[in-house]
Design a protein around this nucleic acid. Structure first.
Lengths: 150, 150
DNA sequence: TTTTCTGCAAACGATTTGCATACAC
DNA sequence: GTGTATGCAAATCGTTTGCAGAAAA
């Protein structure tokens, strides 16, 4: 039941907050449409656009990414490699099954879909009074390829 | 089955790698003994030591934290607030139940103990070939206090 | 004595900000 | 037109690094 955002969603969410639909915001979002399942940093997005002959200020990329994350269209991730990374938020409010497998040898980040944390969330809500909105799970280990190399 | 590290463990692990037991490394670790269940940044540790009349270079704090994390004594955490944070690693290799509840309103980070991810880890290992060593789970939501304020 | 550490200051890299101009509405 | 967004360059902030002197083994 994964929701796929469109450019229409961006337009709509911007209007709701009287923000403007600029070409820059559109091309930043388009980068994520054209690079699904990737975890892009601000620099990555800037480079991709530059390669596509689309000049944009790096500061504008940062501002757009932050905005898109606030609008719920992008998800901000931290893998401990010194920069924030973003990806399309494909989760719906009912099931957010987003897990990342981080290889501690080569640093590669792999995706894994599953769902099992719903029960845990309920449990936590009961015991702590915390109202849980979302979660992120990171698994650390050694990927298939690195294991094969040994 | 939580393991509690001691200064002896530090001494031992340093010796194994022919590294030196310096007063700086000891006082940095002691800060964590004296501040259990907290998530301290390098700056935090530096300030705490300064308040206790223990002068230490900030760079040394960074180096000690990184070292202690490599030795498995500290755990390095990222909460998206712009700096790395550390805490004592109390998990044993069999059960690592370490969850953080991050309030998106006030930024407070709360702990929650449970265990439920063992099954998931096995599942992931089977399906992806990934050899999982550890995991970190972050839950985002609104804490009791912030809910009460509404 | 040998090797590793520390402290300082300078370097660094990611991110943010001030401000004048440009643009969406 | 009005208010917001962009681009640039400068500023900022956490973190790292080079190096000379200090200290553990």
């Amino acid at each position: 039941m994964a929701k796929q955002f469109t450019m229409e969603d961006l337009k709509q969410r911007l209007q709701e907050r009287q923000l403007k639909l600029t070409p820059q915001r559109q091309i930043v979002l388009r980068v994520f449409f054209e690079h699904p399942n990737q975890h892009l940093s601000a620099e990555d997005v800037h480079d991709i656009l530059r390669d596509g002959q689309l000049e944009i200020g790096l500061a504008t990329v940062y501002r757009s990414l932050e905005l898109l994350a606030q609008l719920g269209i992008l998800l901000k991730l931290e893998f401990g490699d010194g920069c924030s990374r973003y990806e399309l938020n494909t989760s719906d409010p009912e099931h957010h099954q987003h897990h990342h497998l981080i290889c501690t040898r080569c640093g590669r980040v792999q995706e894994f879909d599953d769902d099992m944390l719903e029960g845990l969330e309920k449990d936590i809500a009961e015991k702590s009074g915390f109202k849980i909105v979302d979660h992120q799970v990171k698994f650390f280990g050694i990927c298939k390829e690195c294991q094969a190399k040994e």
